[in-house]
């Protein structure tokens, strides 16, 4: 039971990270291989706002969102825009290169040291019916769930969200109706990295922060997007939760060090048996 709860909590965070990735992919069919590095940037942003200005990660969430959203829009205007019509391999190299660049630059600036936010506002544990849940983990999961709901509401219910969906379903048809796809792409990057910013801020209360921290998360996000179905945001929620559960329950099965195995086994199964994922359009 303990494992189910902690898997669920982690799953909600994966879901938010994955929906950022899925949003960007659905919109312009570009896979952001630097997604984990953007998460790392969000965590460092939280860390430095705490270390330099004394802001708790919880308090600095809006600032981190802003930083990452600007970072996302800049990524679109200075990099992605130029490879939109290029071959897929070029696009992969572009975002993969960006990942390596960000990671190396972070190492250069901040050294590969492990850091953590000491004495965060969220700490300690809560006990509920004999199950212990870490306060930061619990809050992180709830915040991510609300962020996810907010994102889902925005995309499905607002005018701009509708235009975003239209662009992702048929770029040319949307453009002809007056939807500027370039702006929509920038918005997608802003939103996608905004999601990552929230997840990163929340995790910085209880995770070590170092330049390579994003790698596992981005791999998990890829698995979640594949499982949920490329381009489907709702799929990310279910897939994120499934992955969180598999990871934490799998850890109990043989040995905790094998837990990643099950997660990537899911990926292989999806690719072989249901490549379009649970809610996929492709």
């Amino acid at each position: 039971m303990q494992a189910v709860i902690s898997g669920l909590l982690m799953g909600l965070i994966y879901a938010l990270i994955a929906s950022g990735l899925s949003l960007i992919f659905g919109l312009m069919e570009i896979v952001n291989f630097a997604h984990g590095e953007h998460l790392m940037l969000a965590m460092f942003s939280s860390f430095w706002l705490w270390a330099l200005l004394g802001l708790d990660p919880i308090v600095s969430i809006p600032i981190t969102i802003l930083i990452l959203a600007v970072c996302g829009i800049a990524t679109h205007y200075f990099l992605i825009r130029y490879v939109l019509k290029a071959k897929m391999l070029v696009q992969i190299c572009a975002t993969f290169g960006l990942a390596i660049f960000i990671r190396s630059f972070a190492q250069f600036l901040w050294t590969p040291d492990f850091r953590n936010v000491a004495d965060p506002m969220l700490s300690g544990r809560i006990e509920f019916a004999g199950i212990f849940i870490g306060q930061p983990q619990f809050t992180a999961a709830i915040v991510c769930l609300f962020a996810f709901i907010g994102l889902y509401w925005f995309v499905t219910k607002t005018e701009t969200g509708l235009a975003l969906q239209a662009t992702s379903q048929d770029r040319q048809a949307a453009e002809v109706l007056g939807v500027p796809s370039n702006k929509m792409f920038a918005l997608g990057w802003g939103l996608g990295l905004g999601c990552v910013a929230i997840a990163g801020s929340m995790m910085s209360s209880y995770f070590y922060i170092f330049p390579d921290v994003g790698i596992n998360f981005s791999l998990f996000a890829f698995v979640a997007v594949a499982l949920g179905g490329f381009g489907s945001i709702l799929g990310c929620l279910y897939a994120g939760i499934i992955i969180g559960l598999v990871e934490s329950l799998g850890g109990l099965l043989i040995d905790p060090s094998f837990k990643l195995l099950y997660v990537f086994a899911i990926y292989l199964l999806v690719v072989v048996f249901k490549p379009q994922g649970m809610f996929g359009r492709y």
Binding site: A173, A174, L177, G178, P180, S181
Partner: peptide, 24 residues
């Protein structure tokens, strides 16, 4: 004039093969 500004001045273009947004 960019494509997306043309509806505003009064040009509507119905593309070949309908191109409705299937999931809306």
């Amino acid at each position: 004039l960019p494509t997306f500004k043309r509806t505003e001045i009064g040009i509507s273009h119905v593309l070949e093969r309908r191109r409705v947004f299937p999931h809306l």
